[in-house]
């Protein structure tokens, strides 16, 4: 994990400024058509207006709560399946054929079925998010348990540990980094899915916000919506990274030395 230092921040800020300034110059000199994509200053103005009118906060809230519920469901089920299939070979083969078959079907291909089953709205979106976040959490958990070195369990046994202590202090810490990787990927996927699902299957949320403004021909607001989606994704990723840092600090220390 790269430490946040001055140099990286400066580089990032420079990169953003560079692109925005060039873009503004190209727009002002009318090389870029404003109907195609509005200039940054106009987007900034629209951004402030949108925030001030607070209309977007309801959509943000709706999208985030859909991700929250769907991701939680998908992650918990993925976790349970991951542990079960790594411990029992019989269950592994019974379940894995289905999991491997369903995995390559993009969650978005489920939209028609989701709408058929759950109608337009919350439930559909939550279902799709749960589906999408299940797979990364499942496969990473599975891999973590499989990769757990037998030597650590043996060592714990020669120290006298019972299975409870082994599970809590050997198995869990050893597979936690894998699980967190799964959660990280799963959350990223969830956020993408929720927005996409809202484009077609709902009448609220950030995806709907974009879609509505497209129909109203308000390109600036479409872009504001996209920026908000990107920012929230960044923040989510940041929080998961904190979690990652906390639970696998012993790994991070290793690479920093």
């Amino acid at each position: 994990m790269v430490m946040i230092n001055k140099k990286t921040i400066i580089l990032k800020v420079l990169s953003v400024l560079f692109v925005v300034i060039i873009w503004q110059i190209l727009s002002s000199s009318q090389i870029i058509n404003a109907h195609f994509i509005p200039p940054p200053l106009e987007i900034a103005k629209s951004f402030i207006l949108t925030i001030q009118s607070t209309e977007i906060f309801k959509d943000i809230y709706v999208s985030i709560s859909r991700v929250f519920v769907g991701f939680l469901m998908g992650a918990v089920i993925g976790l349970i399946f991951g542990v079960i299939t790594s411990y029992s070979a019989v269950l592994r083969y019974l379940l894995s054929i289905w999991i491997e078959f369903i995995r390559p079907i993009p969650p978005l291909a489920w939209i028609p079925l989701a709408i058929l089953w759950f109608g337009l709205g919350n439930k559909s979106a939550i279902f799709l998010v749960a589906l999408g976040s299940f797979f990364p959490v499942y496969s990473n958990t599975f891999e973590g348990v499989i990769a757990l070195p037998k030597k650590f369990v043996d060592t714990a046994k020669t120290l006298g540990a019972d299975s409870k202590l082994i599970f809590l202090e050997v198995v869990i810490p050893a597979i936690l980094p894998y699980i967190i990787t799964g959660l990280k990927i799963g959350l990223g996927v969830s956020w993408m899915i929720v927005v996409t699902a809202e484009l077609v299957g709902t009448t609220s949320g950030l995806g709907y916000f974009i879609q509505l403004n497209r129909i109203l021909l308000q390109v600036d607001k479409v872009i504001v919506g996209m920026i908000v989606i990107g920012l929230i994704g960044l923040v989510m990723n940041y929080f998961i990274s904190l979690l990652e840092k906390y639970f696998s600090h012993w790994k991070i220390i290793n690479t920093d030395l």
Partner: peptide, 11 residues
């Protein structure tokens, strides 16, 4: 005491 020591890396 194992040949590879087997200290728990997370402890």
């Amino acid at each position: 005491i194992f040949q590879e020591l087997n200290l728990f890396p997370w402890k």
